[in-house]
Amino acid sequence: MKLFKISASVALLSLLTLFATNDTAAQDNDIDYETVQIATGTTIYSEDVKDIQGSPLIKESFENGRILFTNGKASEVLPINYDSYKNQVLFIKDRKVMVLNTNGVKGFMFLKPENFEQSDNVQEVFSYQVRNEAFGFSEATPVQLLYNQGTGLKLINVHETSLMRGNSKDPFTGKVIDRYVSGVTHYLEKKNGEVVKLRRLRDKDIINSLDKEYRKQLKNFMKESNLDGRSQKDLAKLLTYYDNITAGNS
């Protein structure tokens, strides 16, 4: 049984040497990589002392990334994580896990991993710049942008965590254990602003959510280009193709 205890996590994280300094290109080519110090007003991250099975964090360990600001600049490289239960962006500074003050923050991104070229995943970029009501958010919430080239067409992952209350005691300890339940929901935002919930992150689900008149053409593109319908990078190629053939129609 894996128990999430923030005190133990902080102690472990303070010993990690995660501070790689290699720059990386974000999906947003307009980012100015001037080193920007994180603004004041942050608080130290804390979690309930009570034992809870699992973790609300989207990363098993903090990973290097940058905070992205609405003025087009990006922060210094920092170890980052996201608590999808509390809706808090976390970073490590001076061996402390801090909660980001999101005033003036556009989003955040993780640096590309060493095996990025061999991976099927796109770079992990999260943005606050979505219509919260379209996703049922009661407050500003970052979403993962798998595809966003400024045409209005977006492929989005929403990371969410709920807390399931325990209803029985552990037979060995006698404790009632709660647990975090995490999941990712996939959405396609069309050029007209309509947001469609996808059953799976697959080419077929995306194609069937787009205009009927283009579906055969899109299927042929996937087949002729020998693309993998489960690869994030290949799905981005599919949406780029769709953007190109529908340019000027929206």
Rank of each mutant, 00 (worst) to 15 (best):
G136S: 01
Q129N: 14
D203Q: 07
T42N: 12
S46Q: 15
N157I: 01
Y45D: 07
E60T: 07
D83V: 12
K93P: 08
E114C: 03
V105N: 00
T185E: 12
S7A: 12
R165G: 04
Q53K: 15
K223N: 08
Q123V: 14
L15N: 11
Y180F: 15
F116S: 13
Q37L: 12
E76P: 01
S61F: 13
P171M: 05
E60Y: 06
I44G: 06
T43I: 09
Y187S: 02
I156P: 03
T17W: 08
G166Y: 13
S46E: 14
R131F: 08
D234W: 03
L239A: 02
E124N: 03
T21N: 11
L218E: 07
V36H: 01
P113T: 04
G54E: 05
K204S: 14
R131V: 14
V99L: 05
A140G: 05
K86H: 10
I38A: 01
A74T: 03
G248Q: 12
N22D: 12
I80L: 15
P171W: 04
V97C: 11
K154P: 00
K223I: 15
V143F: 02
S250F: 12
E117Q: 10
K50V: 14
E34F: 09
R95M: 12
Y180C: 02
K59Q: 14
T35C: 07
N121P: 00
L18G: 10
N29D: 13
L155E: 00
R95K: 13
D48H: 08
Y85P: 06
N192D: 15
Q217N: 14
R66W: 08
Q129P: 04
M164S: 10
L78K: 11
V99S: 10
T173M: 08
G183F: 12
T185C: 03
I92D: 00
V105T: 08
R200F: 11
K154E: 15
N157T: 05
R215E: 11
K212T: 14
K2P: 02
A26R: 05
D243R: 09
D30T: 15
K106N: 06
T151Q: 08
V122P: 04
T102G: 02
V99Y: 03
S209D: 05
T240N: 05
L146D: 03
R200Q: 13
K73S: 02
F221Y: 15
S7K: 15
K237G: 03
A134E: 11
N208H: 11
G150D: 02
